[in-house]
Amino acid sequence: MKQYLLYVLFVLTIGSMVALSASLFGDDNDLNAFYEEDIPLAASIDTELGDFADTFAVLSETFDEPIRESDISQMERLAADPTLDEAMPHPLGTINVIFEARPTTLTVEAEVYREDGTYLILYFSGDEDVVEALDERIMAYYDELGI
């Protein structure tokens, strides 16, 4: 009887391993579709808190009209909050912009680092064509700086 129970346990173990392998390494279409739908396209730029307004002046060149000063100063105040956890994305808000004569909205998030001053990584998400144009402007800006 003991040998029979060991045999059943062995068969169940092998079956479980096969099922686990199939679920882990099986068709990833559902998983890929989940990630593609839930992760918005984003552009990012690195800046110091002291250069916040200047960074937005560069980014404003992408749009038909500059980003409003009130939006920039509000986001700067939020990014300067000393209670923000480091290395965690924090929402700074949304900004309304006009891109190619079309009004649209960008969502802005920031990761904060405070080693030698306050350093930020800003993330911008929104309509795909707007984010791609913004990313092109950021890359051109990095080229201008020689980065």
Rank of each mutant, 00 (worst) to 15 (best):
M1Q: 04
K2F: 02
Y4C: 04
Y4H: 07
L6S: 06
Y7C: 08
Y7M: 11
Y7E: 06
L9H: 15
L9C: 15
F10M: 13
F10L: 14
V11T: 11
V11E: 04
L12S: 14
I14R: 00
S16D: 04
S16Y: 07
S16I: 03
M17F: 09
V18M: 06
L20Y: 11
L20H: 11
S21Q: 11
S21H: 14
S21E: 06
L24K: 09
G26R: 04
D28A: 11
N29E: 08
N32H: 07
A33I: 02
Y35A: 14
Y35V: 15
E36D: 13
E37D: 13
D38G: 08
D38N: 13
I39R: 06
L41V: 07
A42K: 07
A43L: 05
S44F: 12
S44H: 13
I45E: 00
D46K: 15
D46C: 07
E48S: 03
L49N: 07
L49Y: 03
G50A: 06
D51G: 01
F56L: 06
F56N: 01
F56R: 00
A57D: 11
L59Q: 05
L59R: 00
S60P: 04
E61Y: 09
E61T: 14
E65A: 10
P66G: 06
S70M: 03
D71R: 01
I72T: 05
I72G: 07
S73K: 13
Q74C: 03
M75A: 10
E76G: 07
E76S: 11
E76C: 08
R77A: 12
R77V: 10
L78E: 12
A80E: 15
D81I: 08
T83P: 01
T83C: 03
T83R: 12
L84C: 15
D85F: 01
E86T: 10
A87Q: 09
P89A: 14
H90K: 09
P91T: 09
L92V: 05
G93V: 09
T94P: 00
T94I: 05
I95G: 01
I98L: 12
F99W: 02
A101Q: 15
A101C: 06
T105E: 15
T105S: 15
L106K: 01
L106N: 02
L106M: 08
L106Q: 02
T107W: 00
T107V: 12
V108M: 04
V108E: 00
E109P: 03
E109I: 03
E109H: 10
A110D: 11
A110M: 14
E111G: 08
E111T: 12
V112N: 00
R114A: 12
E115C: 02
D116G: 12
G117P: 10
G117K: 04
Y119L: 08
I121Q: 13
L122W: 01
L122E: 01
Y123Q: 14
F124W: 13
D129C: 00
D129G: 01
V130I: 10
V130H: 01
V131H: 01
V131C: 02
E132R: 11
R137V: 14
M139G: 02
M139K: 12
D143I: 05
E144R: 09
G146N: 05
